[in-house]
Design a protein around this nucleic acid. Structure first.
Lengths: 321, 321
DNA sequence: CTAGGTGCAAATAATTTGCAGAGGC
DNA sequence: GCCTCTGCAAATTATTTGCACCTAG
């Protein structure tokens, strides 16, 4: 896994010069969680030791934003705050107006909708800001609310990515199991059997990986959901499963192709948009699996279709003879 | 329809004192479209005549925000802008970083997801900010992009609300037509026939209303979509339609109840959250229609169910006798 | 040696505030 | 007359900049 300094080195712009003060500021900044104002950072620097000018702090913050080490966020307070992106995927915010704390989340469904809306308006989106202002549980009820532990964000993201993959896999397994049961055609049924087997194996692998992840980090499973999803992709198989009709292997293959394609596209595109992280890897590896299934289904569909056409031709020849 | 001054009077806070300067500022502000900075408003005031202090402008802007006449928006420029809410429903923004123009939109699907996410995190949302930063069509291709004409926003909102209602109505009509065809049971079939008839009538009414709206405002239909929706409610009937099985009236009624309830809830809740406007009325009136259908379906279901149970009881008695 | 990087103090920019006077009710 | 609103100028807050000096490559 990438260390904080590797993270910075990988982003250091060419042409610039090294400076111990800047390195020190960056180091202090990366050790913080949450959203710091420029002033917060000045205080931290002052406490840690050095007398570094306010202007340098501002200049270094700008430098980090340009380098992709920091993100500038705006909670409407009339000043900006900064959060680092080291082991911290991009996200949206819930902001409590009562205690001024903020909580992070992400939603693949919302991100898909945003892309569609931008496309409908012929707009090229570069970045989205989404903030829900209101009152947190703690301020409303007094009960301490689970603020997502900042140091766990990356692990929570990976956890949620795995949960999505597992849900999709389960849905796919169900689809292929049902397709196996329904399909009359031998060759078609064999394809579904094979895919059901693969989905089962892969599901077991994903579940093992999930088990390892949560075993290594106490309390990880209890952390609130970070990445929300409602079947942007995994709803596909459930819908496809309903459409399956008794017997028809070719129709079933077509439905399978549609489901796998949707799933592949979702995981590929969504995965690609993330910074290097376990969660990103989960999405991309999963996309690869779906891609293989998709290719297999397409090959089989073409084969079955060719055979069907040959038969029709033979029948026609016989009829006309 | 409410005039600008009625709009202001309805919101004027009690206890305050009237002032001609403030009235003048509010008047100038309400005549503007788009997002003004405090400075823009100062310039406007200066041009219109008066020498009013900058401080008074700021104080009046704050006063308008508190009264609900203005909304403060923050495009990350380091200063705030203000938009009035007279005939202007709340919305989200697409913001072009190249030409600094902004484009408005709303999405019922996103708003539903936001509510779900807030609920999952035990957070009481009060207000959401959603901004998509990027490049607009015009800046990218040179082709003039349709900026939604500000003076039409309310009409466009009404247009889109009607489109949603019409799409839902069509979907409902299809559902009941299919249910009429499939249902064996006479009484059940009659319910569906009646509802299909009502949906048909209501559909015609909505279409007429849509026709009037667009006839009164040239170019309204060509305006880009403001309110995006992908079947937060109207997908229900399509899904329900697929589930209908041959013959079973009670099952069909249950599916109908589920669809109407979903539809009713969506239009009711969504409509309630808007400021007084034609679009809001469309949603709420539509919700009332759905409510009536829902009640009818429930009554009929109970009747059919009671009858079925009586029959079972009679059969049992005969068997045991 | 030279292009950056830094400190300091001054500049900028948006917004707020203290206070004396004006004006509604 | 009282309490709110207004104007003006000064204050505040966040951030940027000019310029002389410093320092890594």
């Amino acid at each position: 896994m990438q260390s904080a300094s590797e993270f910075v080195e990988a982003r250091r712009p060419t042409g610039g010069r090294r400076s111990s003060k800047r390195d020190f500021i960056v180091d202090v900044f990366l050790r913080q969680e949450g959203h710091l104002s420029a002033d917060d950072l000045v205080d931290l620097i002052r406490h840690e030791d050095a007398r570094i000018s306010r202007a340098t702090i501002y200049r270094t913050l700008q430098w980090m934003v340009d380098a992709g080490i920091a993100r500038r966020v705006d909670f409407g307070e009339g000043r900006f705050r900064f959060e680092h992106s080291y082991r911290h995927p991009r996200h949206f915010h819930l902001i409590c107006k009562s205690c001024d704390r903020s909580f992070e989340f992400l939603s693949s469904d919302i991100e898909s909708l945003l892309e569609e809306i931008a496309a409908a308006r012929h707009f090229s989106p570069r970045q989205s800001v989404l903030q829900i202002y209101g009152t947190c549980e703690q301020c409303r009820t007094g009960r301490p609310s689970r603020a997502l532990d900042g140091s766990l964000t990356e692990a929570v993201f990976a956890r949620d990515a795995l949960r999505i993959a597992i849900a999709t896999e389960r849905s796919g397994l169900e689809f292929y199991t049902r397709a196996t049961r329904l399909t009359k055609d031998t060759r078609g049924r064999q394809v579904f059997e094979r895919l059901a087997g693969e989905e089962g194996e892969h599901l077991a692998k994903l579940e093992a990986r999930y088990g390892e992840l949560v075993a290594a980090r106490p309390g990880l499973e209890a952390e609130p959901t970070f990445l929300f999803f409602k079947g942007a992709a995994n709803g596909l198989f459930a819908a496809g499963s309903k459409e399956l009709r008794q017997g028809d292997g070719r129709a079933a293959l077509l439905i399978g192709i549609r489901c796998e394609r949707g799933s592949y596209k979702f995981f590929k595109r969504y995965g690609e948009r993330f910074e290097e992280s376990e969660g990103k890897r989960v999405f991309l590896e999963f996309a690869d699996e779906e891609r293989e299934h998709l290719d297999l289904l397409r090959r089989e569909y073409r084969a079955l279709d060719a055979r069907a056409r040959r038969r029709t031709a033979v029948r026609r020849r016989r009829t006309s003879a």
